[in-house]
């Protein structure tokens, strides 16, 4: 399926989805006392890298299980189109993986949790990755 160049604006569903994401972040703080940053949870899910890797690996498995549960309950596959230039996706993956670990966080760690903590570092990170993401899409869609 080609990438959808138009997607409907969904303010209500997106706000509610955001609230669920926030509740998950609050739950992780209440239970484990940790920031719910997916890049940090991913690298912390490796046994050699932390002594409490178990809950992080379980968290990742929960993320993977979510679309399966939705599919099971609704009987439909979730709506999704993914860019299919595989060389570009390899490059994108390398940049996202390297960048989030070097910069100590991603959309969840700096974005959701960092902004909620009123962290200046996270605000700078969010403004930086947003600016670069806007610029990249502008170049790829309107210049190149």
């Amino acid at each position: 399926m080609p990438l959808e160049t138009v997607t409907p604006f969904t303010p209500l569903a997106s706000t509610l989805g955001g609230v669920l994401i926030g509740l998950s972040a609050v739950l992780v703080m209440a239970l484990f006392g940790r920031i719910a940053g997916i890049s940090g949870i991913t690298t912390g899910a490796i046994p050699a890298r932390s002594d409490d890797w178990g809950w992080r690996l379980a968290f990742v498995l929960g993320l993977i299980a979510a679309p399966l549960l939705v599919g099971l309950v609704t009987g439909e596959t979730i709506r999704q189109t993914v860019p299919d230039n595989l060389a570009a996706m390899v490059l994108a993956g390398l940049l996202v993986g390297f960048g989030t670990v070097l910069g100590s966080g991603c959309t969840s760690g700096h974005g959701v949790c960092g902004l909620a903590r009123l962290s200046a570092r996270s605000l700078v990170a969010v403004l930086t990755f947003m600016a670069f993401a806007f610029a990249t899409v502008f170049l790829l869609r309107h210049v190149v």
Binding site: G93, T100, G103, T107, S108, V124, A125
Partner: peptide, 20 residues
């Protein structure tokens, strides 16, 4: 922090995926 966020932003803009 700045370099990492910039690289992440470029990759996010190419692929549309962040880690979650």
């Amino acid at each position: 922090l700045l370099t990492g966020a910039a690289l992440f932003g470029i990759g996010w803009g190419i692929g549309g995926f962040c880690p979650g």
